[in-house]
Amino acid sequence: MAVITVEQVKKSFSTLEVLKDISFSLEKGEVLSIIGPSGSGKSTLLRCITNLETVDSGTITIGGDTLVTTTDQGNAVYADKHTISRIRLRVGLVFQNFNLFPHFSVIRNLTEAQIHVLKTPKDEARQVANELLVKMGLADKATAYPYQLSGGQQQRVSIARALALKPQVLCFDEPTSALDPELTGEILAVIKELASEHMTMMVVTHEMAFARDISNRVIFMDDGLIVEQGSPEDVFAKTQNERTKRFLNRFGS
């Protein structure tokens, strides 16, 4: 069953067409990597799915409910506010720069949305948070503040923060781009572990080896279009596409 379907999505920033005609679907339990050069529209695509940007036209459905669809005249029509706030929580997002709340302790970063958005009782929210911290290897950091943590630890907190809302899909927007190689490994290990638990994930990344190793499917984007998609083997080893080859050669993979 498709958790997310995206059909003919288009998006421009004034005169710049960032997404030209994007269609794909994400199946339950699947790990999808989106690779491609900077400015190819990968992040914008993720931001449209998480409703941080609005599309100009096209259809996006999440967990079977329509976030946005397009009339015959070609105008994007979004679901009503209530529906949006309900279905957007099905998709979690981990940012490149973590975006933790600096004035909240680690534990409060994890409980705030549970308590105020999901209306989870405080004790239960705290329990969920503590379990996630144990899982992330941060059990001793519950009362620390984000500035006291390393970049890798901060990113693990932000993954836990997203997981605390029990999303159906977890999206990552270049989760390791702000980290040095050692810390990058730390985060990739966490994502790998989530993949082994069959968490449905969509990862925008520049880590080619990682995309090859953990994905079920890879999408290569360039200039606002999906150039190629398929299994990691299809895209990384067997590609016949000149554009894909040129891109991968630069990464030496």
């Binding site: 409703n51 941080l52 957007r88 940012f95 975006n99 933790l100 709340f101 705030e112 105020h116 958005v117």
Partner: peptide, 20 residues
Amino acid sequence: GQLEASSVLGFSKVHTFSHI
């Protein structure tokens, strides 16, 4: 990014303003 994180976590505008 603080606003974006708040939005993705589902905070209302009022909650985002007053608590974040």
